[in-house]
Design a binder for these strands. Structure first.
Lengths: 245, 245
DNA sequence: CGTTATCTTGACCGTCGTCAAACAGGGTGG
DNA sequence: CCACCCTGTTTGACGACGGTCAAGATAACG
C-alpha cells in the first residue's frame, strides 16, 4: 500500500546514516509489516517490567524514556525524534527496564517482534545497523550522565537545548533557527534532576544572558557559537559524521 | 598456548550469559589472537577523540569510563569487572567519545580490531551476544542517570555499592559478604556527581545507620534486605536472569 | 621511616529545593 | 463569544543538601 512505502522512510534513512544498506536491505525494511498507531501525548508505549511483543518506530511526534525511583521521583533518561526506532531494548531483552512514553501526540509504527528479529537474522547489514544505532544511543546516555552529574543548572539546560536542536538537524531543521521544544518545564527538570521551579528561573536566566530567546516554547539561539560555548556542547558524542562501515 | 586457553574464559562465560553460543562459537572466541597487557592503576586504555585499532577485554582488575566537561570536572559513567569486554564502542564507531582507564592494576587482553570484526561477521551468535551485551550496558547507563539525577547522596552511594556487589556475584563473590570496593572516595564522588568530602560524610552516615560496615575499603552489608531497601536497589536493570534467545 | 595520597572534621557558603500564591493561556462548554 | 477551568509558568521567602576551604589525622608505599 502507498502509506507503507512512506511511513518507514525516516527509519531507513536513520539506520542508513551509519551503516551500509543495499537497495535490497532498504526494500526489506520498507516492506516490514506494521500497524500505525496514533496516540495523544503521555501515552505509554512500554511499561517497565512488561515483556514486549512488538517493536515501535516513531513516525511523527516525540517520545521519551523514563525511570522512577521507589519514592516516585521521575528521571527522564532519553528523548526521541521522528524516524528513531524506540524498542530494540525490548526486542532482544525479556523485560523492559524502563518506561517509554509519547511526549506529544504522535504516530508510531508497531512492527511485530518476530518480523524485526527475522530481518536482523537474515540481513547482516541490518543487524549491524541496529548494533551501531544501539552504540550511539549508549554514547548519548553517557553524555546525559555527564550533563546531570557535573554541569550546573544553566549549563545543563543549555546543553539539553543544544542536543535537541542538533538532533533535529537530520530532519532538516537548521541549527539556530527557532524550533518548538516539545517539553514542559517540569519535563525538562525531570531530564536534568531539577525542579520545575528552578528550570523556570534557569530559562529566564539564559534569556537574560542573551543565550536564547523564547516565545512560548519556541526556542532560538541568537548566536549558535556563543550558545555552544555556554553549554560546552560538543556534538562528537552524537557520532553524526561517522563513516559507514 | 596454555595461557590463551584460560585468559578469555571469563569473556566466554560473560557473553554466554545471555546468548546461545555453540561449542564452536566458544572455541572460536577462545582462539582469538590477543596480546596480554599488564598495567598499573589509572592507565589509559582509550582516550576520547582517538580512533582505536584494537578491542580490550578485562582479564583481571577493574576499569572505568569517564567523561570530562570543558572545565575539567570529571564524571565516571561506568565501571567494569573482570571478564567484561570494554571496547565494542570503539570497535564499531570511528572515534571514542569517552576515556577508558584502569581503576586498579589490571590485566587486559588486547584483541586486534579486525579479528573481532571477523568473528562477529562470521558467527551470528557472537554478533548477537555482542548486541545483547551492549543493550544491557545501555540499561546500566540509564539506571546510572537515575542514580545521579534523582537520588540523594545517601541513597546513591548505597546504590553504587549494591550494584557493584551484585555484579561481583557472577564472579563468585557472595552478596553481603565483605568485598573490596576498588575506588577512592574521590572516584566514588565522580561516579555520583558529589565531592570527595561529601562522600566521606555519606559513607560515615551509612555506617552510623548500620547499613554498611567498613574497614579500610572493605565493605560489607550487615543486612542485605535492609541495604537493598535503603538504596531502593532493584537488580532488574542488570538483566541477570535473562532468558537466552 | 619519611613522603605522599587519602580520609576526616569543622566552619561557612551557595545552588537548588520547598512551599505557596499569583498569573498566563488555551481548551471546552454554555 | 465569553466564562470557566486546568495545566503550565512565574515570583518570592525561606530552608537544606551538598560544595568549598582549610587543617589535621590515617594510611599507603617506596
Amino acid at each position: 500500500m502507498a502509506i507503507a512505502e512512506h511511513t518507514l522512510d525516516l527509519l531507513v534513512r536513520r539506520l542508513g546514516l551509519h551503516a551500509r544498506l543495499t537497495a535490497e536491505d532498504r526494500a526489506a525494511l520498507l516492506a516490514l509489516p506494521f500497524v500505525l498507531r496514533t496516540t495523544g501525548p503521555s501515552a505509554y508505549l512500554v511499561r517497565e517490567g512488561q515483556p514486549s511483543e512488538s517493536c515501535a518506530v516513531l513516525v511523527a511526534g516525540f517520545a521519551y524514556r523514563q525511570k522512577l525511583t521507589e519514592q516516585g521521583a521521575r528521571q527522564i533518561v532519553g528523548i526521541h525524534i521522528p524516524g528513531e526506532p524506540l524498542d530494540f531494548q525490548n526486542l532482544f531483552l525479556d523485560v523492559a527496564d524502563h518506561d517509554l512514553l509519547t511526549l506529544t501526540k504522535a504516530q508510531v509504527a508497531i512492527i511485530p517482534r518476530e518480523a524485526v528479529r527475522a530481518i536482523a537474522r537474515e540481513r547482516p547489514n541490518v543487524a549491524h545497523a541496529i548494533l551501531i544505532y544501539t552504540l550511539i544511543e549508549g554514547s548519548i546516555f553517557r553524555e546525559w550522565i555527564l550533563n546531570v552529574g557535573r554541569r550546573d543548572a544553566k549549563a545543563s539546560v543549555a546543553h539539553l537545548l543544544c542536543e535537541f536542536a542538533i538532533r533535529m538537524d537530520v530532519l532538516g531543521v537548521k541549527t539556530g533557527a527557532p524550533y518548538d521544544f516539545p517539553m514542559t518545564q517540569e519535563q525538562i527538570g525531570d531530564c536534568l534532576g531539577l525542579t520545575p521551579v528552578h528550570v523556570s528561573r534557569t530559562l529566564r536566566a539564559l534569556a537574560a544572558d542573551g543565550l536564547i530567546t523564547r516565545v512560548r516554547r519556541q526556542i532560538s539561539f541568537p548566536s549558535w557559537p556563543v550558545m555552544r560555548r555556554a553549554a560546552s556542547f560538543d556534538a562528537g558524542y552524537l557520532h553524526l559524521s561517522e563513516q559507514r562501515s
